[in-house]
Write a protein that binds this DNA or RNA. Structure first.
Lengths: 206, 206, 206, 206
DNA sequence: TATGAATGAGCATTCATTCAT
DNA sequence: CATGAATGAATGCTCATTCAT
């Protein structure tokens, strides 16, 4: 039952085209109106062809998630060296800006997908998405290595959880709002403040 | 076209039963498998009956949201007097515990709905949901009135946005995880810390 | 399974109210939107009550037809004496005017029913409707008795068929048109002409 | 939303098959029992396929009407040259025979549709059907051109209305009867007589 | 490989009919 | 007798998926 792995150039193009079409359809038509036929249409192929590369619709979503996660991971990797040099506030601000940019790329094609997130799969956050969390934890640990004084923070796991999930969820939520009550700058600034003050407090206690 | 308003006991029960069945089906079957037939089944009625009380499926979702929002608003209202007497850390902790409890009530029937949130409607957060945000802002403002020293916080809107959205989103996210890496206590504690330290920092600056 | 025959005043009223509501709903909502619930609503009763007087929906239609046919027969009977005294053109004109008036009575409540005619029953013209035809034949024969020279018409059955069906069908059709190209007077005049000239011709031949 | 235009042989066949099945179902099952599933069944396709070619059920009816009207128009066009050469009685007789034949074609598949006519659409005669009326008016005018003495008829519009509607309605009605009281020959003869005598009378008056 | 017409199970919704009150 | 909430079979329609070409 498993579809052949695309081994040819055209095939690779088709796969990419389908994944891309998935993001576009989701952003344009919404989850309910994202049908395989729509996706195939946008990808410029026939529905039959779509099924030569994907077992079923969910496999397309999974591939989209894989693609999205890889893109974010690549972004994070590329950004680590610069990030590590920055102080906390600048670092947080820097990362959140990068994330916002990525989510708004190409008419926000990732944004809707990120918002729908696990809802598409009707389960807990997918394993793929956890990779982003892990990568961020890793990056934070690298940061801590470069800034040993931070080791005095009492509960690094809690801090990680808060700053990572809080940061990502709020940004996604914010970007999805049609008429937000504060500006993106204010939001990112606020998150930066929050991080720096939390850390300052934790270190004072220690 | 409008369905009859329930004027009898049995009818009122049906409406409640349908709304309740909506939450249950969502939690059990997921969004994609929450069909009118499933809902009717769980409610112990026939599909025809569902349509005597609701114009269409979306109307059921809207009623569910209304019901959920009302429940949360009632919770918040009932909790204000106690909340206002507490210090910040205790207050935040108190509210987040109340929220968690509510979301976990009845086998977490609200949780999935809260997670899916506006996604069900394929649009921005519905007006109803904004009511919760407004109520929380209101409560925070009341709190500030009782604790005038807080007026020195520079950007109250940003603080509100962060603490309200951050708090809610992280809690929902956390409760939805199947194997979280930290405990709920740690999470709520961390959020309490974050709030108190953010405020402390802001007030120091002022 | 047969419903009780209404033997009481209220019952009789209900039956009439239902039949009447049937005509009204048909005229107002069209065949497709004439549901038993609508009919009951208009009749000011509950659907349950409707089924105490009628076995099913079709029985309502049948009763409507019976009622309609009786009304037309009564009209024809009441009109015979005057009709018989008139000359042919005047007689035809007279009858067609009477028919038009009846069809337009009460906001044309009969008209839609007459147009839908057998379509409601999905069969050939119902037996009831044939009674009208027979009555008209009878009237024509009475007329011939009073005007013996008409006996010279060669094919009275054919003449009857043409004048009866032609007259009725064209009138119903005409009254149902939203923007007819000629006036009702012209139409009735034309039909009168047609009758008189047909007869004149037939008698000349004889 | 628009269904794909049939571009392939198979598709074209499907469209024709569906339209044809529509006529057959209407004749066999009646209006109330002509469901999309029945139509698809008769056409030998699945309901899904029906909806690849038609937006909805009404679109099938519209296509049927278009098809029917086109067929009648083609018949009329093909018949004009011969018709124009004939005298009035022969012309009327000729046309009515042609019409009867067409309506009885293929087990009378058109007949039920013609009877239901606009009732299917629950409105006045559809625009398509008016095309037949117009075409007949046109033909009559051509006839008059070839027989200039007819110009002396006083009211050509009224004559047209009577002869066109009367002729068509009576024929349809007659063919739909299960046990008519006269023969088709007699009916058509009678209509021929009526036409010729009406005209003779009108011209005498002039 | 690519196509796209065909499929058919499944959905939202309606409405004639019933029956406990 | 009257009610009207409840029923559930049936309808119009969609869409993920298949397969002959």
């Amino acid at each position: 039952m498993n579809r052949r792995k695309p081994s040819q150039k055209r095939a690779k193009n088709s796969v990419e085209a389908i994944i891309n079409a998935g993001f576009i359809s989701l952003a344009k038509n919404g989850l309910a109106n994202t049908t395989t036929i729509h996706i195939a249409d946008i990808a410029g192929i026939s529905p039959g062809t779509l099924y030569q590369y994907f077992d079923n619709k969910e496999a397309v979503y999974t591939a989209m998630e894989r693609y999205f996660v890889n893109d974010i991971l690549a972004l994070l990797n590329s950004v680590v060296p610069e990030f590590i040099q920055l102080d906390i506030r600048a670092g947080v601000t820097f990362l959140l800006h990068k994330l916002s940019e990525k989510l708004l790329e190409d008419n926000g094609r990732y944004l809707k997908f990120a918002r729908h997130g696990a809802h598409i799969f009707d389960e807990n956050l997918s394993q793929h998405a956890h990779e982003i969390e892990k990568k961020l934890q890793e990056i934070i640990m690298q940061y801590v290595m470069h800034h040993p004084e931070l080791m005095r923070i009492k509960s690094i796991p809690t801090f990680n959880y808060l700053i990572i999930n809080g940061g990502i969820l709020i940004i996604i939520r914010y970007l999805s709002e049609s008429s937000p009550t504060i500006s993106l700058e204010q939001l990112i600034d606020g998150l930066g403040n929050m991080a720096i003050r939390y850390i300052a407090g934790e270190m004072q206690d220690a």
